[in-house]
Design a protein around this nucleic acid. Structure first.
Lengths: 358, 358
DNA sequence: ATGGGATGATTAATCGTTTAACCAACGCTA
DNA sequence: TAGCGTTGGTTAAACGATTAATCATCCCAT
């Protein structure tokens, strides 16, 4: 049967020019020794014929597929678009394709997804881990993108530093009592963000932390957070570890008639798509995904290029489990001040109240 | 050089069992004629050796990569996670991998992205088109997922029907004056949603449509929509073509002290991740992405299997531009009634006002 | 003039899988 | 027992690109 690809191959070009396929290959790759004008001729003919190299043939010969696997704990995560977009851009810039693997929140599914990627012959993987992810027994270079405190983390945003910035901002505005809103206490990222927030508290400031996941276990998913009570208790700022939870807090407060930012401030994390367009626009921490992706892909590419130099015939070679390291592992986050954070009502009451209505 | 893959290949299994590689291939694929017990032996040995077939070798021989390309107009679109997740699931179910290509909103970039996919040898593509997308000159099966009114659409949600459902719901609640909120008047999907909404208006109902993109061109991105004025004009329901815009409307109304759903109702589209957790939870239209993905992938797989039967050596074969068709092209959407829609204040005022406070 | 580098191209092997074509038995019928 | 279909396997040729090894020139210095 042997289904032929529609386009021409090296042999066709070689025949057209009147040289050997090896020369064509060398000319196009610029590797061997080919005279300058022959290179030109070959390039031109290749273009005319609309030649596109067969990745399959190349992959078979070189043992490299030119494809990276992107393993995500849950594609449904609202942050995923940013990650996928940045990784795809960085990878295609570096000449790689991106194969996605979603584990839909399940560890077993994740293992299967990783195996499928290996079967597809990816040259490397970018893994955004979930607690419980088994990375050890993957036999290709792996870049781990989580948070600096995670062992083996290759590169990530400086979540701790982001937390600091948020609280420094709120502190500068004069907020004293903060409610820190996390979702999953088992998440490294969220813990780092909260940890950073706490570390930036000035002596005259205090903070309490709630974890929505725990709350939802008793009160059901999407339950109210009881923020009205918190406001009465004197909390003036609500700092969430994600814009999603910040939005949840914001709408709950608005619904209760509490004015943001006049009475209390709300801040998020990640600068999700809705952050700038809601009213009031959300003060949040922006993540420079492009930089993170560039670093991750570059580190991966280096590791992949390194494996190519291993001696041929070394069948017992174990590139396995190599978690790639990058020179920079922490990418700073950026505070984006919008309308949802402002002077706390305590301070305003000493001035004429309501002057800073949006 | 010839970098060897770490694992065993067909030859290794063949040597271990003492048969030819062809027999091993036949045994594992179940194609040729191999005795039942020999199949068992081969399977067992293959397992023991941890054999994983080389996709590169297979791809080279069969001309099929086992990979589908997923072309998206803009990964940053909040609906993308759903699409990617569903497509990945459907594809891996059908034995395909998914290579992503993002065009970051640009048509030129999209063309390049499509070309990269072709170079990578994808067997087929799933394209969520953008106006201006050139599909004609793609030489592999293509499934187009947009909206039924788009020419060449393979499968999509019944956006028109979804629009109908929303307005029927609002009509049943007693709303008479509706503001329909679109973003981009050039979007087929949005036009169908709006069209469906209008088609469900009862004789005693009226609707006006605003397009945010036009608004933003004069007033800047993320500008206010002036909904307070609309409420004063007597509009009691705001139906957006996306949860994102519904959220924008909702927060703007809440900020202005207008109560939802007591005074006015707000509805969205797509059931984005924040829809159920905000206050009030958003009434919206849910899209059955899994079904759409299954249909798209199945149609694609059929077309791919069909090309394999074309005679070998047919170098001039043009599978090109074949937009795949599916038996079902419209998948119904589902109304999800939550808290953001309710009886309009006009009706409530005849009863005791404020009884239905959330 | 002749050995020795460059230079420029070719030859042929190889990656791992699939599959058409062929072949050797074996059993069965005529 | 010659002929024939069936069963169970082997052989060998692809697929397309890469690259080590080889070869043929030509040039220049000794």
């Amino acid at each position: 049967m042997a289904l032929n690809r529609p386009g021409p191959n090296l042999g066709k070009i070689a025949a057209a020019v009147g040289v050997s396929t090896a020369t064509v290959s060398n000319a196009l790759s610029g590797k061997g020794r080919v005279s300058a004008d022959l290179v030109d001729t070959i390039r031109k003919v290749a273009d005319e014929l609309g030649y596109v190299p067969s990745q399959a043939g190349r992959a078979l010969r070189t043992g490299r597929s030119g494809v990276l696997g992107l393993v995500l704990p849950d594609i449904a995560n609202p942050l995923f678009p940013q990650i996928a977009q940045a990784m795809e851009a960085a990878a295609s810039q570096a000449g790689y394709g991106v194969l996605i693997a979603d584990s839909r929140g399940d560890v077993t599914t994740q293992t299967q997804a990783i195996n499928r990627l290996i079967e597809r012959g990816v040259d490397g993987m970018i893994i955004v881990p979930r607690r419980g992810t088994r990375i050890a027994d993957i036999d290709c270079p792996v870049a781990v993108v989580d948070t600096p405190s995670t062992p083996g983390n290759t590169v990530s945003a400086d979540h701790w530093g982001g937390g600091r910035q948020i609280v420094e901002h709120l502190g500068a505005l004069g907020h004293k009592r903060l409610l820190l809103i996390g979702y999953d206490p088992a998440s490294n990222v969220q813990n780092d963000r909260i940890g950073g927030m706490k570390s930036a508290l000035m002596p005259d400031m205090s903070a309490e932390t709630i974890w929505l996941k725990n709350l939802e276990q008793t009160q059901g998913a999407g339950c109210a957070m009881g923020l009205t009570g918190r406001v009465q208790q004197g909390f003036t700022a609500f700092a969430a570890v994600s814009d999603l939870h910040a939005l949840r807090a914001l709408t709950e407060l608005q619904q209760a008639g509490i004015r943001v930012p006049e009475q209390v401030s709300v801040t998020g994390f990640d600068d999700l798509i809705f952050a700038p367009v809601i009213t009031p626009a959300l003060t949040t921490i922006h993540m420079n995904m492009a930089t993170i992706a560039d670093i991750a892909v570059a580190a991966l590419a280096r590791a992949i290029d390194a494996t190519i130099t291993t001696k041929p015939g070394d069948k017992t070679r174990k590139t396995g489990g190599t978690i790639v390291v990058a020179e920079t592992s922490e990418v700073p986050m950026e505070l984006v001040v919008r309308q949802s954070s402002g002077l706390p009502s305590i301070l305003l009451s000493s001035q004429s109240e309501g002057t800073s209505v949006l």
